[in-house]
Computed example of a mutant assay.
Amino acid sequence: MQRHQKTYFYQPELAKTVILWSWTFCLLLSSLLLWLEITTLQIWTIILFVIFLIVSVIQIFSRKLIIDDKHIKLTKVIRKYNETIEISEIKKVKLRRFGLSFYFSDGKKTIVLNSRSKLQLYTDLQKDK
């Protein structure tokens, strides 16, 4: 079955996602606290807020799950840690409340997806089985 390449946005497993976004929101809170402490809008407040926006956009749009006929490629924020998973290596795919879990012979990988992407990816992978 010939499949076109599909792209989904994902986040890492739930625990990592909470930790990473907590650090990101520390930038936002620092910006707000600096603004409230000084009571006038300062350049440092604006700089911290812009850094928060940049980091947020990078975290959202750099993590992609790209699926084709034989592979699932997980791109990450730091490119040297990208992963490629062969679909034939996946033993089982399980729907989770916030995403999907891929089971392999030597472990599992869990990712967080939105509801629509989760169902589309699950049905695509079930067609191959």
Rank of each mutant, 00 (worst) to 15 (best):
E89D: 09
K129Y: 06
L53Q: 07
P12I: 06
I43W: 09
L100C: 12
K64S: 01
T40H: 06
E37M: 03
Q2K: 14
I78Q: 11
E83I: 02
I85H: 01
H4K: 13
L27P: 06
L33W: 12
F25V: 04
S56H: 02
L113M: 03
I51K: 05
K64H: 00
K76F: 05
I85R: 01
F49R: 10
L29I: 14
Y103E: 06
T40A: 04
D124V: 05
I38C: 04
Y81L: 05
N114C: 08
F98Y: 05
F104Q: 03
E83P: 04
K70E: 09
L121C: 00
D106H: 10
Y122L: 07
K109W: 02
I47E: 14
Q120V: 14
F49Y: 08
Q126H: 15
W23Y: 15
W21K: 05
E86L: 14
L48S: 07
V112D: 10
L119I: 15
W44A: 09
I54W: 04
T24H: 08
H71E: 12
F61I: 05
T24E: 08
K91E: 15
Q59G: 15
E86Y: 09
R3I: 03
F104I: 06
V55R: 13
T40E: 01
E37Q: 04
K94I: 15
L29D: 02
N82T: 15
Q59E: 15
D106Y: 11
L33K: 11
L100G: 08
W23R: 05
Q5V: 09
L27S: 07
L14M: 05
K16H: 08
I54D: 03
I78C: 14
F104S: 02
S117T: 01
D124F: 09
L119K: 12
F9E: 03
S115H: 11
H71K: 12
T7K: 11
F61A: 05
K92V: 11
T123M: 07
M1T: 13
I46R: 00
M1K: 15
A15I: 15
T84P: 01
I60P: 00
S56N: 07
I43C: 10
S31G: 08
I85P: 04
T24N: 13
M1V: 13
L65E: 02
S88F: 14
S62C: 09
Q120G: 09
T39H: 06
I60F: 15
S88Q: 13
Q59D: 10
L20V: 12
Q5H: 13
T45W: 08
L100P: 03
Q120Y: 11
T7E: 08
L14N: 08
R63H: 12
L95I: 03
V18G: 10
L125Y: 00
K109S: 14
T24A: 09
K16R: 07
E13M: 06
T45M: 06
Q42Y: 09
L119R: 10
